Simulated scan of single mutants.
Amino acid sequence: MGILDSLRSVLGMSAEADATREASPEDLFGMSTAYVTMQANLGYDPTGEAALCFSGVDSTAFAETERQVEAILEAGEIETGTQARFVRDGHGYQWVILEDDEFEDLVTSIHFAADTFVEEGFGSRLLAALFAFERDGRVVYWVYSFRRGAYYPFAPTGGHERDTSAEFKLESVFDGELTVEKEKEYWYPLWPEGDGRPWGRS
């Protein structure tokens, strides 16, 4: 099974079939308090980046939904300064990349984007939302799986290696504050491209 097939399996239909609760964009607001704990208790600062990963579909309705999302985010940039860009990764998945030094604005913007896909009938195309944090030069992510309705930590260390001890620490601290995925096989590693981010180089 290749990387692309693994992603489809873990964040895709098999994950949805095995899910224990329904996913909701409202879950994203959990990061509004979790980031305070990341800073105050663990020393992780937000990098000012968040991202929404989704799989596209060749239809006029989906293209129109993407335009709606883009228009919403453009309006948001005027209001909050949150910058948004759309990219496609090497596996063919699409990303909305958000950048803002105000973490609350990132959460609000990514919620608006996700909620628009859901309202227009394309919630099943949503795969994951990522929030990036940094400590001592090391970036970790909280990943929200839309197919599982839960968060999990991801701490890449370079190459295709991950810091599982850091991930378990994050799980122990946030279990109760966030809905954390209990089944570790669904902690899918969204490997960065080179020394960049999972969605590509910044």
Score class of each variant (00 low, 15 high):
143 V>K: 01
122 F>L: 12
127 L>Q: 11
107 V>P: 14
119 E>T: 13
144 Y>H: 09
115 D>Q: 10
144 Y>D: 02
121 G>H: 07
122 F>R: 14
107 V>W: 05
111 H>P: 00
132 A>W: 09
142 W>P: 09
113 A>T: 00
139 V>F: 07
142 W>N: 06
122 F>V: 12
143 V>D: 01
121 G>T: 10
109 S>H: 10
118 V>N: 11
138 R>L: 15
129 A>T: 07
114 A>K: 00
135 R>E: 03
132 A>R: 06
111 H>S: 01
108 T>N: 14
115 D>L: 09
139 V>S: 08
124 S>I: 15
126 L>Q: 10
139 V>E: 08
119 E>S: 13
113 A>Q: 00
109 S>P: 02
144 Y>K: 03
125 R>E: 15
116 T>K: 13
126 L>I: 06
125 R>Q: 12
143 V>G: 01
112 F>R: 10
112 F>V: 14
134 E>K: 09
130 L>G: 02
141 Y>D: 05
111 H>L: 01
117 F>C: 09
134 E>I: 05
130 L>M: 08
116 T>L: 07
112 F>H: 11
115 D>P: 02
111 H>Q: 00
134 E>H: 07
133 F>S: 05
123 G>N: 11
122 F>G: 11
140 V>D: 09
137 G>R: 07
115 D>E: 10
130 L>H: 02
119 E>I: 15
117 F>P: 07
120 E>V: 15
125 R>F: 15
132 A>C: 13
129 A>E: 04
112 F>Q: 12
121 G>A: 12
116 T>Q: 15
131 F>I: 01
130 L>S: 01
115 D>W: 03
117 F>Q: 05
140 V>H: 08
109 S>I: 05
124 S>V: 13
119 E>G: 15
132 A>N: 06
127 L>I: 09
114 A>G: 01
136 D>R: 15
107 V>L: 06
126 L>Y: 07
141 Y>L: 06
143 V>C: 06
109 S>F: 03
125 R>L: 06
128 A>F: 02
